[in-house]
């Protein structure tokens, strides 16, 4: 999963399609409009068509389609467990719910794969308490720094005969000690981070976050798609 997050982060920062250049606010509006269409629809035909259209949008945005589809499948698999428990022999509602899951997951993947995290977190940070807003940015940064360290640690552990899968209790103990090392490293790092925040005068917010609402012509792409999806939903299904 950590490598999925790293992958998404790279897609978002490196892309320069029209969808990438649209503002974060317009893309959040896109998500709201498309989710509105999805959540209010009970038509398998509409949902399947919307999913296909989203796939085309992913391709146009030059986000790798295969990995994006795989990423969007993750919540669908778990939804399937719940749907299975509710199945009463009729295929229509489960089909609708599965298509809803697929379409909404892919919408979310498209949002995050085209929007660098500072722009994505900025509007959320504005409407949440400072602890939550600043916490979001600091957690994200801390995560990426920790991933690199964790990768090196797990590699070293395996090279030295740990985490072999041959002795589960031993492996769990090794994994626990590895995570314990990461806890200590994170704690010490957090103290140093606090020191530097103190030196640099932290009293407000971590992020200046200037670009998330800068509108350009590129904003027509996500907003246009969202409005079209909603319009199509009402045209096909009425109220």
């Amino acid at each position: 999963m950590s490598h999925d997050l790293a992958l998404v982060d790279t897609w978002a920062s490196a892309g320069d399609s029209a969808f990438h250049r649209a503002s974060a606010l317009s893309k959040l509006l896109f998500v709201a409009l498309v989710l509105g269409a999805i959540l209010s629809s009970t038509s398998p035909a509409f949902l399947a068509g919307l999913y296909a259209a989203l796939c085309v949008l992913v391709l146009i945005s030059r986000v790798p389609l295969g990995p994006a589809l795989l990423l969007s499948l993750y919540p669908v698999l778990f939804s399937a467990l719940w749907l299975l428990s509710r199945w009463n022999g009729d295929w229509t509602m489960p089909l609708v719910l599965v298509l809803r899951s697929l379409a909404s997951s892919l919408t979310a993947v498209l949002l995050v794969a085209s929007t660098p995290y500072p722009d994505l977190f900025a509007p959320i940070a504005r409407v949440t308490p400072r602890l939550v807003g600043d916490g979001l940015f600091l957690t994200y940064r801390a995560f990426f720094l920790l991933v690199a360290r964790a990768d090196r640690m797990w590699t070293a552990m395996k090279l030295r005969g740990g985490l072999t899968g041959r002795g589960l209790p031993r492996d769990f103990r090794a994994a626990g000690e590895g995570l314990g090392q990461l806890v200590i490293h994170s704690y010490d790092r957090s103290q140093r981070l606090y020191a530097i925040m103190h030196i640099r005068g932290h009293s407000g917010r971590v992020c200046g976050c200037r670009h998330w609402a800068e509108f350009t012509a590129f904003d027509l792409v996500p907003v246009g798609f969202g409005l079209a999806a909603l319009a199509m939903r009402f045209w096909m299904e009425g109220r």
Partner: peptide
């Protein structure tokens, strides 16, 4: 360790951290 010094998401955010605060 500059990774421990850089707090904010983008270069502009980090360099502007002190004057903003």
């Amino acid at each position: 360790n500059v990774d421990e010094q850089i707090l904010a998401p983008t270069v502009w955010d980090d360099v502007s951290f002190s004057p903003r605060n």
